[in-house]
Simulated scan of single mutants.
Amino acid sequence: MDDRFKMPKLVLCSLVAVGMFFFAVFGVQTFWSEHVTKDYNKHLTEQVYVDVVVNKNANLVFYKTGCPYCEKGKKAVIETAEKSSYPTFYIDVESEDGQALVKKYQVEKAASLVTIRDGQSQLYLYAAKDKQGKITADKKTIKEALDDSKKEAQ
C-alpha cells in the first residue's frame, strides 16, 4: 500500500479513539452527577408555588458547604425529600437569604431540616454523632420529618 495513505488512516483512527474516549468520560461523568452523586435541586414550578404560598406546606433543608454533618446527611435527605409530596428547598446558611431564614426558623446548626405544614413549622437535625463519636445521617429523624403518608392519614 502507498505510504501516503497510511499516515491519514493512523491520524483518523487516533482522532476517533480520542473522540470515543472523551465521549465515554463525559457521558459517565454526566450519568454519575445526575444519578449517583445527587445534588440539591432548586426548580420552582407552579404546583410548588401553590403548596408554599397558598397551602403553606414545604420542606426547608439547611446546609453549609464544607460542613461534615451536612455532607453525611446530604444523600439521605435528598433521597427522602424526593419522595415527599411537598416541595423541598435547599438553603445555604451562609447566603444572605439563608441568614434571614436561619433567624426566622431559629436554626442553630447548619444540618437542620424544617418542615412547614399548614403554616406551622417544626425543626429537626438530620445528622449527628453516634455513640462512637462518628458523624452519621439520622435516617430515622429524616424519615419521620419527611414521611408525609403518616401525617396525611391523621
Rank of each mutant, 00 (worst) to 15 (best):
D39Y: 14
Q47P: 07
A58N: 07
V53P: 02
V16P: 05
F62E: 00
F23D: 09
F23A: 13
F23E: 09
A58C: 07
F21M: 04
S33C: 10
V48N: 13
G19S: 02
V25I: 09
Y49N: 08
G66H: 03
T45S: 02
F21L: 08
F26Q: 06
G66T: 06
V54I: 12
Y40D: 02
C67A: 01
V52D: 02
T30F: 15
C67G: 01
L15R: 01
F26K: 07
Y40W: 13
T65I: 11
A17T: 02
V18G: 03
S14C: 12
Y63I: 06
A17N: 03
D39G: 15
L44T: 11
N41S: 12
S14F: 11
T45L: 00
N57Y: 05
H35S: 14
W32S: 10
V61T: 04
F26P: 02
V54F: 10
K42T: 15
N59V: 09
K38F: 13
V53W: 06
A24M: 12
F21Y: 11
Y40S: 04
V61C: 03
N59K: 01
N55Q: 07
G19H: 00
V54A: 11
W32Y: 15
L60K: 04
D39M: 12
V28H: 11
S33D: 10
V50F: 02
F26I: 07
L12C: 10
H35N: 15
N41K: 13
Y49R: 09
F21Q: 07
V50R: 05
V54W: 06
F31H: 11
N59G: 05
Y63S: 03
T65A: 12
L60V: 04
H43F: 12
K64H: 06
F22S: 10
K38N: 14
M20Q: 11
Y49F: 09
S33M: 15
V48I: 09
V53D: 08
Y40K: 03
A24T: 15
F22L: 14
D39R: 14
K56Y: 04
C67E: 04
T30A: 13
T45N: 00
V16M: 03
W32A: 13
F22E: 07
L15C: 07
H43W: 08
D51G: 02
F23M: 09
S14M: 10
K64G: 06
V61F: 05
M20S: 13
V16N: 03
F22Q: 14
V36L: 14
Y63F: 11
V52M: 04
N59T: 07
V52G: 02
V53T: 14
N57G: 05
N57R: 09
E34R: 15
L12E: 11
F26V: 04
A58E: 03
T65C: 07
